[in-house]
Design a protein around this nucleic acid. Sequence first.
DNA 1: AACAGGGGTTAGTTAGGACTAACAAAGTAT
DNA 2: ATACTTTGTTAGTCCTAACTAACCCCTGTT
Lengths: 149, 149
Amino acid sequence: MEDYLEAIAVLRGEEKVARVNGMSRRLGVTMPSVTSALRKLSDRGLVIHEKYGYVSLTDEGNKLAQDVLRRHRALARFFCEALGVDKRTGEEDACRIEHVISPVSMDRLTKFLEFMAACPFGETKFPETYRYFLEHGKLPQECLRRAPK
Amino acid sequence: MEDYLEAIAVLRGEEKVARVNGMSRRLGVTMPSVTSALRKLSDRGLVIHEKYGYVSLTDEGNKLAQDVLRRHRALARFFCEALGVDKRTGEEDACRIEHVISPVSMDRLTKFLEFMAACPFGETKFPETYRYFLEHGKLPQECLRRAPK
DNA sequence: AACAGGGGTTAGTTAGGACTAACAAAGTAT
DNA sequence: ATACTTTGTTAGTCCTAACTAACCCCTGTT
């Protein structure tokens, strides 16, 4: 179901509106599958979908969708940028993992990306400095000192 | 299904033999679920299971189980040791992700762990040095030189 | 105004994977 | 040897999430 929410959010961003057909193609499922998913999501108060019309998200649905997207993007970045996996594969893995990873691990992974970004010149002691970063939310003094500007 | 194979391999390691009851408790499912899974796996030639008897793996089943275990252990190590996730959560995430991660990403993750382990004093330029490590299978000269012995 | 054709829906199926209830085999104790 | 307990199995049900086939809406063309 999260996939459907995510697809709606992305389509509305890319093409202004989300329709059954677009979702169907994006998700690689048939239109009846989309229709039935939308009915369920509508029952749960997450999407708005009047018959034969456009699809949009309720506030609650949007919150969920944005959260999935956040996870997706972080995972994709991790695989592609950090681990050097090709974009296609990284995206696919993000798509599957985003639904099963725990909040705790997700949080750590996000922090790891921040840590990488924060590291002056990419130089660091890993995982020692990362541990410090986790605890204090910033790099240790001696690490920052090495980075003028 | 991979979970069942994995459970058999682990139980045979821990308690010498795998039985339905043990698998049931380890996997958190009822015994009928185990029985029915075993029938399927047996049909596919992956496990050997005579009624009311012990459960074991065929060569092919064992190969698959060992592969899942390898993935599981690498993922758990990554979450726990690299990212600093608590053991419990790391294990749970490994359990779920091991079934959906692509071979490519799994390979990179494994390499990342090797990279971490190989890094003298844990000091490195990430991700630059990691990229070098990926390409050449070892740390660059100037990095090794800093590590006497 | 009729009518194609694409988008959308409904109805009905299938497959996987879990569950409960009830029964059968094995093991253990008296 | 028999009765009880534990372990396993069978049968039948449910739920989810996909699918196909067949039927609706809508719009643009002529």
